[in-house]
Design a protein around this nucleic acid. Structure first.
Length: 422
RNA sequence: GCCGCUAUCGUCCAGGGGACUAGGACGCCGCCCUCUCAUGGCGGAAACCCGGGUUCGAAUCCCGGUAGCGGUACCA
């Protein structure tokens, strides 16, 4: 039998990264088995905000590379079908009217149980199950009625969802039994916590896909990282391509305990992905990122700067701070230059004679200068770096000077020599 | 309160009766490389929640406790 799963987010604002991880597990499971991954929006109203949230969810999944099968469906579209089933259940005595609403009769004795793929046997005493409202007095079905019914109608074989749904499951199982349908396999995935082990929230930084996108993370890195939150292939493998993930993913290796989101590990992993990119592709993505973020920096210069930063930064979002000196004015802190102005001045004079103004020639000239001044390369180059980049941290100095250009380099060196001397 | 889920280095995972002197990764610390920062290489510190039980033997199985989380809606 072919596998069919679904992601059923509610369109309330931006989609949370924990839900994205659940979506990823669904997607990996479906692709691994050559089955279908459906997207269903659990809307209860048709407001403008809902429409925007639904669009945002799709955009987020698409960016991560999670494609779905078939059209996006909306819960509200099956309102009438739900009402009909509810009426039938009333006729059969399995549900009853209660002040305009329709309530489902839960069994009073025994227990409702299922074998959860990630948690094993789970069992709830039926006496704890209250008769739940199927249809509200205004005619709209409730989530615990509509959701399992849609799973039935859509032929969902595996329900992979967050652990917050564990206690909804016995209710939904009883409803599915009542309508005489077959039960899906359930897999309840744990929650994703913030770095402090508390609920992931805004104060932890990025919690929705837009944030990760804005910070310059690579979708493949984020996917790899998310996959490892609660799942592993073995005891050694960490870096896995999207194809490897699909090939290796199984629900059996998903752990039941909650996972804390470690931003430092994500940063490291993103760096691994960015460094592994072919230079050309790296430049393309960097350019695209900067454009998306609203920078109007010269594309040609960005492309030339790309190789200088590729193994230096972990996120595209760091480019502006790290290489921004190439594109805008700088203001070196005079305190950082304290006592080093003679070196800066000497470097200025030395570089004035360098022709062509290329990294190799620049390096030869500056190394010669350091030697003559009897300064270690470290001591000699740092003031120059500060004068030219405005920072103690920068891409390679000689390459940076070349990209900056002779005229601008000399101008900055002169300025620094003058400013701090005063 | 009641019901349920969870519990291995700081973090993510591996290990599921003897192979454990508990393995890998991030992070951290040290050394090497080095124009800064990174990258890369080498090394190090770091964990089985607590208490009972089962067993020749428990990180692993069972029970209890504790803690965290979820649910307990005419929310999803």
């Amino acid at each position: 039998m072919s596998v069919r799963v679904r992601m059923a987010p509610s369109p309330t604002g931006l989609i949370h990264i924990g839900n994205v991880r659940t979506a990823l597990f669904n997607w990996l499971f479906a692709r691994h088995h050559g089955g279908e991954f459906r997207l269903r929006i659990e809307n209860t109203d048709t407001s403008r905000e809902v429409a925007e949230a639904a669009a945002h969810i799709q955009e987020s999944l698409r960016w991560l590379g999670l494609d779905w099968d078939g059209p996006v469906t909306f819960q509200l579209d099956r309102m009438a079908d739900c009402a009909e089933v509810a009426r039938r259940l009333v006729d059969e005595g399995k549900a009853y009217e209660d002040e305009g609403a329709i309530r489902f009769r839960m069994p009073d004795e025994g227990a409702t149980a299922w074998d959860d793929v990630v948690r094993g046997h789970v069992e709830f005493p039926n006496e704890k199950l209250e008769d739940l409202v199927l249809v509200r007095s205004d005619g709209r079905p409730t989530y615990n009625f509509a959701s399992p019914m849609e799973d039935v109608w859509d032929g969902i074989t595996h329900v992979i969802r967050g652990e917050d749904h564990i206690s909804n499951t016995p209710k939904q199982i009883n409803i599915i039994h009542a309508v005489g349908a077959e039960l899906p396999v359930y897999a309840h995935v744990s929650h994703v916590l913030g770095a402090d082990g508390k609920q992931l929230s805004k104060r932890h930084g990025s919690v929705n896909i837009d944030d990760f996108r804005r910070d310059g993370y690579h979708p493949s890195a984020l996917m790899n990282f998310l996959a490892l939150l609660g799942w592993s292939y073995d005891d050694k493998t960490t870096i896995m391509s999207r194809d490897e993930l699909v090939e290796r993913f199984t629900l059996e290796r998903v752990v039941p305990s909650p996972a804390a989101f470690d931003y430092q590990k994500l940063d490291w992993m993103n760096g691994v992905y960015l460094r592994a990119l072919p230079p050309e592709e790296y430049a393309d993505e960097l350019v695209r990122f900067l454009r998306e973020q609203g920078y109007d920096w010269d594309e040609e210069l960005v492309r030339r700067a790309a190789p200088l930063v590729q193994d230096k930064i972990e996120r595209f979002g760091q480019f502006a701070e790290f290489a921004g000196f190439l594109f805008r004015e700088i203001e070196p802190d005079p305190a950082l230059l304290d006592g080093d102005t003679p070196v800066v001045a000497a470097a200025r004079d030395e570089l004035e004679r360098v022709e062509p103004f290329r990294a190799a020639e620049i390096e030869a000239a500056l190394r010669g200068l350091a030697e003559r001044l009897e300064l270690s390369p470290r001591k000699a180059f740092q003031p120059i770096r500060i004068a030219v980049t405005g920072s103690k941290v920068s891409p390679g100095l000689f390459e940076s000077l070349e990209l900056l250009g002779k005229e601008e380099s000399l101008r900055r060196l002169s300025a620094a020599a003058a400013t701090s001397a005063a």
